[in-house]
Design a protein around this nucleic acid. Structure first.
Lengths: 139, 139
DNA sequence: TATTGTTATACTCTATAACTATA
DNA sequence: TATAGTTATAGAGTATAACAATA
C-alpha cells in the first residue's frame, strides 16, 4: 500500500472533527432509547444475524474483557442480547441480538445515520462523489 | 437550506461508520497519554488561546454541568487546564489550557489525526477533493 | 500451560437533586 | 427570580488482578 499522501492529513483531520462532534451527539441520542453510549456501541457492533464472541466484542470496543461482562450483563437483563456457549470451544460465549434487540438497534442506526442538514450543501452529484470516495477509504 | 438530498444517507452512514471506529480507537490512544476518552474530548474542545466557559464545555460534550465539574477538577489537578472567574459575570468560570495542557493537546491531536493507511487508496487529487467536500459539510 | 470469560476492587464518568453565589 | 457552577449521591463504564472452566 502507498503512503497516505499529501492531503491525507487534511482529510483525516476533518474526519476526526466529524467523529468528535458525532461523539458529542451520541449521549442525547442514546438517552432517547434509554441506552448509554457504550451500549449503543455494543448494539452497533452486533449486526443482526451475526454471532459475536465476547472477546471479539472487546476487541471491537478496544476495552478489557472484564468490562464486556458488565455491558453484556445489563443488555442481557434488558432482553436486547443473549449469550450462549459456543459449540466448538466451550470457553467462548457468543452474543446475538434478540428480536427486541434487533428492533432497538434498527432505531438506533436509523437515528444515528439521519444525515445532518449540512450535507444538503452538496449537490446530489457531489454527495454521490463523497460516497464513492469514502467507500474506497473504508474498503 | 435545502433538504439533505438523495445520497446524503449513504454518505452520512459511512461517516457514522468512520465515527464509530474512531470511537473505538480513542481508548488506546488516550491511554498512551494517561488520559481518559472523556478527558481527550475536553482537551480537543479547548483550543489553545481560547477561553471556554464551563457551561459551553458542557454543551460541546452534551453532558450535565455537574459532570464537567469533575472532569475539570481532575484535569486541573494534573495541571493541564486552569479555571478562572469571568470578569464580566462572576458566576461564570472560564477554562484555558496551561502550557503543559497545550503540549498534551498537541500530542493528542497529532496522534488522533495521523491518517490511516487506507487514505492512501485515494490519489492526491481525490484526497484534495475529499477535503473540499468535507470542508463544505463542516461549514 | 494457555486462553475465555467472570469476580472483586477501585477509580472515572455520568445524571439528578439540592445547594451557593451571582445576576 | 433565574442562572453558573458545586456538592452529594447513586449507578454505569473501565482497568487490574485473581480466579474458574476449558483447551
Amino acid at each position: 500500500m502507498k503512503r497516505p499522501g499529501p492531503h491525507a492529513c487534511d482529510a483525516w483531520q476533518m474526519l476526526v472533527q466529524i467523529s468528535m462532534s458525532h461523539r458529542a451527539s451520541l449521549p442525547p441520542l442514546a438517552s432517547e432509547l434509554a441506552l448509554s453510549p457504550a451500549q449503543c456501541h455494543v448494539l452497533h457492533v452486533l449486526e443482526p444475524g451475526r454471532a459475536v464472541p465476547m472477546g471479539e466484542l472487546a476487541g471491537a470496543l478496544s476495552c478489557d474483557a472484564s468490562n464486556v461482562t458488565g455491558l453484556v450483563d445489563r443488555l442481557e437483563t434488558r432482553g436486547l442480547i443473549k449469550r450462549q456457549p459456543s459449540a466448538e470451544d466451550r470457553r467462548v460465549k457468543v452474543l446475538t441480538l434478540t428480536p427486541a434487540g434487533a428492533r432497538v438497534r434498527a432505531q438506533l442506526v436509523a437515528r444515528m445515520t439521519a444525515p445532518p442538514m449540512t450535507l444538503g450543501r452538496l449537490s446530489p452529484e457531489e454527495q454521490q462523489l463523497l460516497v464513492t470516495l469514502l467507500r474506497r477509504v473504508l474498503e
